[in-house]
């Protein structure tokens, strides 16, 4: 009798755990399905805004306008295995997707170039997990804006001391991140020099 009730309580435990897991997973799955399209849409809008920011183009205010502008002016290409590239139809600008290794993980950036002059139109970091308050400051405006109109190969100088078209301000206390950014912009400049003018 004792033994039987022990088995029964064990079975009850398994059944309970199974059913409660089932209930929660079903609820979460529904929430996931319901919000999936919204999340994908947010992601696309984010990427489009970032490309336009990098190219130095005024970003249209509404979501619809952004979509229209993008489909009219930008050609996205993905060569086999490489990261996407965005070429602007009415101008020399190309935005490259470049990745590099930061302190805590991969950094993915959009780097825009004027293919005629070889000057950068801008940079934006679409994925980074650097230290908040230190390396993560690469996402701040002052850091991103300083690349506009500059030309590689780049070197970095202490914060606030850059003058000249191939220098940029480092971030004090975030040397590893700064080095990663240097590699990224130089890689982008290299790609732009070799393939930028010849088309895609």
């Amino acid at each position: 009798m004792e033994k039987k009730s022990k088995t029964a309580s064990r079975i009850k435990m398994v059944v309970f755990m199974f059913s409660i897991t089932f209930v929660f997973v079903v609820v979460l799955s529904f929430v996931h399905l319901y919000t999936k399209s919204m999340i994908t849409r947010n992601e696309t809008l984010f990427l489009k805004r970032s490309v336009l920011y990098t190219a130095g183009v005024q970003i249209p205010a509404g979501d619809e306008e952004l979509d229209n502008y993008f489909s009219e002016n930008v050609i996205e290409t993905v060569e086999n295995g490489s990261l996407p590239r965005y070429r602007f139809k009415n101008g020399p600008t190309v935005v490259y997707t470049i990745n590099g290794t930061g302190l805590w993980g991969v950094i993915i950036a959009h780097a825009g170039f004027d293919t005629q002059t070889g000057k950068m139109t801008g940079i934006d970091f679409i994925k980074q997990s650097e230290t908040p308050g230190l390396g993560a400051r690469i996402s701040e405006d002052w850091f991103r804006e300083q690349f506009r109109g500059k030309k590689g190969p780049f070197t970095y100088v202490p914060e606030g001391e850059n003058d000249g078209e191939n220098q940029f301000d480092a971030i004090t206390g975030a040397t590893v991140t700064t080095k990663a950014v240097k590699e990224i912009v130089n890689k982008a400049a290299e790609i732009n020099n070799t393939t930028g003018k010849s088309g895609l």
């Binding site: 409660i20 897991t21 919000t35």
Partner: peptide, 26 residues
């Protein structure tokens, strides 16, 4: 059941955290 209460709590907590994450993303 007392013996699996921590597993159940963890499951409940994890579910709510995933919920917060999804809602923020959307």
């Amino acid at each position: 059941p007392t013996r699996i209460r921590m597993m159940v709590s963890t499951l409940i907590i994890a579910s709510y955290v995933i919920l917060v994450d999804i809602v923020l993303k959307a």
